[in-house]
Amino acid sequence: MFAHMHVVMMDTGQHLALVAVALAISIALALPLGVLAARHPTISAPLLAALGVLYTIPSLAILALLVAYVGLGAGPALVTMVAYAQFVLVRNVAAALHGVPVAQSDAAMGLGMSDAQRLMRVELPSAFPVILGGVRIAAVALIAIASLAGYVNGGGLGTMIFDGLQRDYLEEILAGSIPIALLAIAVDTGFRLIERRASRWR
């Protein structure tokens, strides 16, 4: 395993990159969707139901379906990851916004903030620590799901796991899975630290 340290490092880098890109896209999608769900109860129920269905389909099945249509590579893996993260993130953003005290929203309106100002200056900052908690959970889940990229030629630490499984080569499987576990613990700890800093005022 140590003889192939550079391979492990490279795969870890790819793995992290996959997670970072998927997480960035997921957040960019989930924030507006979460705001929409929080503001409009009529949209919230069907939206969360749809995302819930997506969430319950095994990620491997989504991936297989995508590969059948768009071929191998990191692309289908990213789409799978983003789809999976949406349910966690959208529900979390909506819940975080619901958790903002009504008095704060009322005061924001009464003091003369526009809807956008109220959202950007009061509601999102107030909900931020809770939203961050959801991002942490999504990030940890994505680190695990990113392994599937290795199955479809998308890179990352999963490459070694699936290769090892095929060749019945335990050390290679461990070389892929141990870094994944460490990565998950490190990311979780890092997010918890940021969360604590962001919650000073709570």
Partner: peptide, 8 residues
């Protein structure tokens, strides 16, 4: 309920 912004 005052409604001070708790993060400020």
């Amino acid at each position: 309920a005052v409604g001070l912004f708790s993060h400020m």
